[in-house]
Design a binder for these strands. Structure first.
Lengths: 335, 335
DNA sequence: GTGAAAGCGCTAACAC
DNA sequence: GTGTTAGCGCTTTCAC
């Protein structure tokens, strides 16, 4: 691998001049600069980023912490973030964390080792050490899709509870009275969406029954399927279900299908997130959309400004949107 | 941020001793080691990886090149690769490349700059410079899900053509005679799967008609939907469709749904890959499974051995498996 | 405009 | 067992 010294020897100049030429600095005679750039092309020289970041004391890369099991919503989110960050001149480094304390600590160690310019959390880690580090290190950080009490961190998110209420109210407005809930125990949004479901019901004067809700350990289609099965077995006379994520909803629809029930003829299903695939399901999934692209862009933008030393408002709360497709309609007659 | 010198001062020893203690080397008096480790805990010291890799001349991280638009199949693949690599003691660095020459070159530059221990390609880049660099630099490299003529690179993949043939023959065995094809123009697998479709048809004495096939510019549900629509408009009397990826298949099912046709009652649909979601669709998608986990693990294993300087066989060809779910059945009577 | 020298944080020879 | 020294590849004063 050619180094700056090799190039210096080749060009018959000093390493400093190479450095200046490569980095487009002033004070290099045009013809020398040309010759150097020509040499760079020939040799395929690219400055070693480790060496560079050692002296510059910055890496031009921001870390993105994301669950190892990231779902399609998160996947779309981080792609947008990555692209936008690239636009601001930053690279990204991904840290996949598994849902276990050890993994979070390992991730934290790596983050410290890599001396990143900033950290974006697309995953709500459990370990407080994580947040403590972010706070104490003064590292630019933004929480994407969740907040943390204390107002210390910048965060980009929707009003989860309000959005879940919108979903529930849509079902109610269609005439449903017995509505099931499929949500999860992990991460704040699970509880927040469940709360929105309850308040949506309450606002319509409908009692939220304990038995109508099931809280799953994760938000996968498989959990949605087994959650829906549980609901079905309880024989509650549900005519609709609110699933806290589209993936849970997909599993729920599947369980219904396996039970010989049709969506939306027998049971209506509404999801949350509006992941890409939801529009292509048959029937298309009615859901509450989080403005993924906008949120991703905003996250990158805040990060970039934070790195540049600007101050930024603490919270960016985005609006949600009800997307009505074919998986919801009025309850079957007789109910 | 605490550095090795700070620690040395704190512990009253030299930096070398700190280095030895932290890296678990011999020749450190037990009580001193203890004190140092204690200090490490207190201060939260983590060695700067840039500095470390400069002297070690290796980074313990392998790069994974993957399309920016990676699909669910690739997503599962890289998660497995990442996890397995982690098990071998390597970190991973992702390079998302957009389908355009400039992006591939930018990616190549970054790869050169980062001095990785190896490169895994989960994306078949177009630029020959990329492969030239890999070859000339002697960097351990493995191509995952595709091969390259010349036998120079290690690669992990299935026999795409044979697998597509299996899919087609399944349809034929069900009684279908007019079978549509939805594949793509990009990446070798598009042509290989199309070829498998043709040879599957030929093996059954069925003529492959030009009009029954549509080649899309990408492999998304949206393309599958528009491809299926095109097929429908041609009014060919198709009773089944082979889609070259599950995502294409999902879009095809959607187009059929929108046209008021039922799967599999009116038209059977078979996909390729067996992405996670396929089992949760309603109806479940019949498909050809690539052994994602095994392929991912194998890729990581080969990489690890390559880095350690071992020789490895050039190709790992995995077997595929037909997964029959509900989206395929015999053709409607009267056809 | 250009080069020499110092130094970023770390590890590995090599003394002691 | 431990410290001293050199050096990884780069950028940046500071002379010239």
């Amino acid at each position: 691998m050619t180094s700056i010294k090799d190039l210096a020897r080749l060009a018959g100049v000093s390493p400093s001049t190479i450095s200046r030429a490569v980095n487009g600095k002033k004070y290099v005679k045009p013809e020398i600069r040309e010759r150097i750039l020509e040499l760079v092309r020939e040799t395929g020289y690219v400055p070693n980023s480790a060496a560079r970041s050692m002296v510059l004391k910055r890496t031009f890369t921001v870390g993105i912490v994301i669950p190892d099991t990231f779902n399609m919503f998160q996947r779309q989110l981080f792609s947008t973030v990555e692209r936008s960050l690239e636009g601001f001149g930053y690279h990204t480094s991904f840290f996949f964390v598994v849902w276990e304390p050890e993994s979070e600590l390992r991730c934290l160690r790596r983050i410290k080792a890599e001396k990143l310019d900033g950290i974006i959390m697309i995953h709500e880690v459990a370990r407080p050490e994580f947040y403590d580090f972010l706070a104490k290190s003064q590292l630019p950080a933004v929480l994407c899709t969740f907040t943390r009490a204390g107002g210390f961190f910048h965060s980009v998110h929707v009003d989860e509870e309000a959005a879940a209420r919108t979903a529930t109210e849509h079902l109610v407005s269609l005439g449903h009275r017995r509505i099931g809930l499929l949500s999860g125990t992990h991460f704040s949004f699970g509880a927040q969406r469940a709360e929105g479901y309850r308040s949506g019901l309450a606002a319509s004067g409908i009692e939220a029954r304990e038995a109508d809700a099931v809280l799953l350990p994760s938000y996968t289609p498989e959990e949605g399927r087994s959650g829906m099965r549980a609901l079905l077995e309880r024989d509650l006379g549900l005519t609709a279900v609110f699933a806290a994520t589209d993936e849970l909803a997909i599993g729920a629809v599947r369980a219904l299908y396996e039970a010989g029930l049709k969506v939306p003829r027998d049971v209506s299903v509404i999801g949350f997130d509006d992941i890409d695939i939801s529009a292509y399901l048959s029937p298309g999934l009615t859901t509450v959309r989080q403005p993924i692209r906008e949120m991703g862009k905003r996250t990158a933008e805040i990060m970039s400004r934070l790195i540049e030393g600007h101050r930024e408002p603490g919270d960016s709360v985005f609006g949600h949107e009800l997307v009505i497709r074919e998986s919801t309609k009025g309850p079957p007659k007789g109910n």
